[in-house]
């Protein structure tokens, strides 16, 4: 039986001010799979990912990564994960290479491992010699590739990617998707990602959880979901579930 990397059980999150973002969310992610959380704006995707990334604390319920509770054992969780926020940036006065060196320093056991991580990230990013330029000179696509590279170079047990292609043009989105697909398989990384792009989810994900108003309302492989809802693609499934079909 495959190991469960992520176990989320009856997760609740109430923000200061009373806004209830999660209302009993439960799902699991198995080792080696790419799991996609999809849902409309405000459904609770980013809140879920932030809780799993140990940035936010759940109000109720549990969230475990490889058995470690994100609330009581955040240090152990952080050694297993690499997180890419939706609106992530980087230190603009560092070069791409210096930035990778900075991130790798927290994960590598020795200089040799750090060099290996940086070389891999350089290759993944496809930035060539521009890696030596200051980050402030990078385009949005270049920055996102650098950030994907820094996330994958540490070979995390779990990569948490929040909208990995958000705001990118078609060419850069395609490049980022290919990178995720290729290197997560190559390194054996389990991935939990969120996305609005159904094509992306169909292309990347082994299983999908549709989140609506803080709960998982449907779950399965893209093929299973399409069959279950008699839809030709995930967009139709999504529209039927969240009630956007009439619009």
């Amino acid at each position: 039986m495959p190991t469960q990397v992520v176990e989320v059980n009856d997760l609740h999150k109430v923000y200061p001010g009373g806004k209830e973002a999660l209302k009993g969310l439960s799902f699991t992610v198995k080792e080696g799979e790419i799991y996609g959380l999809i849902g409309p704006n405000g459904a609770g995707k980013t809140t879920t990912l932030r809780i799993l990334a140990t940035i936010l604390e759940p109000t109720n319920g549990t969230a475990r990564i490889y058995g470690y509770d994100v609330k009581s054992e955040p240090e152990k969780v952080r050694r297993l994960i690499a997180y890419l926020p939706e609106e992530a940036g980087a230190y603009k006065y560092l070069s791409g290479l210096e930035f990778l060196d900075f991130i790798a320093s927290f994960y590598a056991e020795d200089e040799q491992e750090k060099r290996r991580m940086i070389q891999e990230a350089w290759k993944i990013s496809g930035l060539g010699m521009r890696i030596k330029d200051k980050i402030k000179t990078y385009s949005k696509g270049m920055l996102r590739r650098l950030l994907i590279a820094k996330t994958l170079m540490v070979h995390p047990k779990l990569a948490i990617l929040d909208e990995p292609t958000s705001g990118l043009d078609v060419i850069n989105s395609t490049r980022v998707r290919r990178i995720i697909k290729k290197y997560t398989r190559e390194y054996g990384v389990t991935v939990l990602l969120s996305s609005h792009n159904m094509l992306e989810v169909e292309y990347l994900c082994d299983r999908v959880g549709i989140i609506h108003e803080g709960r998982i309302v449907a779950e399965g492989s893209p093929a299973e979901l399409k069959k279950m809802y008699g839809a030709e693609n995930l967009e139709e499934v999504f529209a039927k579930i969240v009630g956007g079909e009439e619009i």
Partner: peptide
């Protein structure tokens, strides 16, 4: 401002 805080707080550092 440089949108690094989220990343920084998930790194394995005290």
């Amino acid at each position: 401002e440089q949108k690094m805080l989220e990343t920084l707080l998930t790194l394995p550092l005290s």
